[in-house]
Amino acid sequence: MMAYAIVRGATMVDTETADTAEWQARAKGLLKAELKRRNVTYAQLAERLAAIGVKDTEPNIRNKIARGGFTAVFLLQVMTAIGAREIRLD
């Protein structure tokens, strides 16, 4: 299946890629905001994840969040580890 292209400025953009990048940015922003709200660093997050049985390194966590392309499982693990009980999408 071929994605349609749109023009942004003078550049052709694959809509599938553009849409994915926007969703990844939104996911990244959501997680970073939740961590900031709770004053949790990446090092602390690695410790909290380990406490619930999720082994991951601080650099790996930082990279996952920076990309925004993490799994729903990772999102749920992080939210559980930091004690978040709800997610606001607006």
Score class of each variant (00 low, 15 high):
Thr71Asp: 05
Lys64His: 14
Leu76Asn: 12
Ala33Pro: 00
Thr57Glu: 12
Ala72Pro: 01
Asn63Gly: 04
Gly53Tyr: 09
Arg85Gly: 14
Thr20Phe: 04
Ala81Gly: 05
Ala25Pro: 00
Phe74Tyr: 15
Ala43Pro: 00
Ala21Val: 09
Ile65Arg: 00
Thr17Gly: 00
Leu31Thr: 02
Leu45Val: 02
Asp90Trp: 06
Met12Arg: 12
Phe74Arg: 03
Asp56Tyr: 10
Ile61Arg: 00
Glu22Phe: 09
Arg85Ile: 13
Pro59Thr: 08
Lys64Leu: 14
Val54Pro: 01
Asn60Lys: 12
Lys64Gly: 01
Ala51Ser: 15
Arg8Gln: 12
Asn39Glu: 14
Leu31Glu: 01
Arg38Pro: 01
Ala5Gly: 03
Thr80Ser: 12
Val73Arg: 13
Lys55Ser: 15
Gln77Ala: 10
Trp23Leu: 15
Trp23Gly: 03
Gln24Trp: 06
Leu30Ile: 10
Leu75Thr: 08
Thr71Arg: 06
Ala51Phe: 06
Ala33Gly: 08
Ala81Met: 07
Gln44His: 04
Leu49Ser: 03
Ala81Lys: 03
Ile52Arg: 07
Ala72Lys: 07
Thr57Trp: 02
Arg8Ala: 09
Gly9Ser: 10
Lys28Ala: 02
Thr71His: 03
Met79Asp: 01
Lys64Asn: 11
Glu34Lys: 07
Ala25Phe: 05
Ala21Ile: 10
Arg88Ile: 09
Ile52Ser: 05
Ala5Ser: 11
Leu75Trp: 01
Leu89Ala: 07
Arg62Trp: 06
Ala25Ser: 11
Tyr42Cys: 05
Glu16Asp: 14
Val54Lys: 11
Ile87Leu: 15
Ile65Pro: 00
Leu45Ile: 05
Thr80Asn: 10
Val78Gly: 00
Asp14Lys: 04
Ile52Met: 07
Gly53Met: 10
Glu34Gln: 11
Asp19Phe: 12
Met79Trp: 04
Gly69Pro: 02
Leu35His: 03
Gln44Thr: 07
Ile6Val: 15
Met79Gln: 10
Gly9Ala: 08
Ala84Cys: 13
Gly69Glu: 05
